Computed example of a mutant assay.
Amino acid sequence: MGEGRGSALVVVVAILCLLAITQPTFAAIHNVGNRGGWTFNVNSWTRGKSFRAGDILAFNYARNAHNVVAVNRRGYATCSAPRGAKVYQSGRDRIRLNKGQSFFICTLPGHCQSGMKIAINAA
């Protein structure tokens, strides 16, 4: 009976040690455009911000007034969505960032050209 307690104690101590040396990481939630939300001239919103893989972008906007489309670098530069691009249009879209560059635009006529686009590099 004493051996069982000793083994359980070793397991508990090992788990506690692992928890002590690992640092939990929590994804940050970034409200795109801050209080103004996803709207015109938001393309400079990313300046001075740091993003990590796993962080969540929260796109808040009036449904049917805008959309969010994940595009590639060319789509970002030309304000056009490639065939098969993922389109979000709930007005409360949440997108988890992958490591590397991500690009998002609004594809409603004239919106992207009015600065409704963001480019993000997540570490």
Rank of each mutant, 00 (worst) to 15 (best):
A81L: 08
R47K: 14
A58W: 13
V11D: 09
C112F: 00
N34Y: 12
V10C: 10
N98E: 13
A77K: 15
T78F: 12
A81G: 06
M116I: 01
I95A: 03
R35L: 13
R63E: 08
N67W: 06
A77N: 15
N60R: 15
M116R: 03
G4W: 11
V32D: 02
N72D: 15
Y76L: 04
P24E: 11
T107D: 12
A62S: 13
S90F: 02
H111M: 14
V68S: 04
V42W: 00
M116G: 05
S80E: 14
N72Y: 01
N60A: 12
W45P: 04
A20M: 09
W45I: 03
Y76G: 07
Q101Y: 11
P24L: 11
S7E: 13
N60F: 07
T78Y: 12
R63D: 02
T39S: 12
A20K: 07
F103V: 04
A53Q: 14
C17T: 12
F51W: 06
P24W: 11
L19A: 13
A28P: 03
I56D: 04
V42P: 00
I120H: 02
G54W: 07
V11C: 06
A81H: 07
F51R: 02
R63G: 00
N34M: 07
W45G: 01
A20S: 12
Y88V: 03
I15N: 06
G100Q: 07
Q113C: 05
K99W: 05
A28I: 10
G36A: 10
V69H: 04
V12A: 15
G115L: 01
A8P: 00
P24S: 10
N41Q: 09
R52P: 00
A119Q: 13
V69F: 05
A53R: 12
I56Y: 01
A65T: 13
S50M: 11
A119W: 02
L9V: 09
G48T: 07
Y61W: 11
A81E: 11
E3P: 01
G48F: 05
A27I: 08
I118K: 04
N31S: 14
A53Y: 04
V71H: 00
N64R: 12
F103W: 15
M116C: 10
A62E: 14
G100T: 04
H30D: 01
W38G: 00
D93K: 06
L108C: 08
I15S: 12
G100S: 09
R83Y: 11
K86W: 09
K117Q: 08
A123M: 12
G6H: 08
A70G: 05
S114N: 15
Y88A: 04
Q23R: 15
Q101P: 10
V13R: 09
Y61I: 09
V11M: 12
G2D: 08
I15L: 15
Q113F: 10
G36R: 11
F51D: 02
V42T: 11
A77G: 08
G48V: 07
L57F: 01
A77S: 15
Q89G: 15
R73E: 15
S50K: 15
A122W: 01
E3K: 09
N43Y: 10
F40V: 07
M1N: 08
S90G: 07
D93C: 02
V71Y: 01
T107F: 03
H66L: 04
E3M: 07
W38R: 00
Q23L: 11
N41T: 05
A65Y: 10
L18A: 13
H111T: 07
F103P: 06
N121K: 14
G84F: 03
F103N: 07
S90M: 00
A20Y: 13
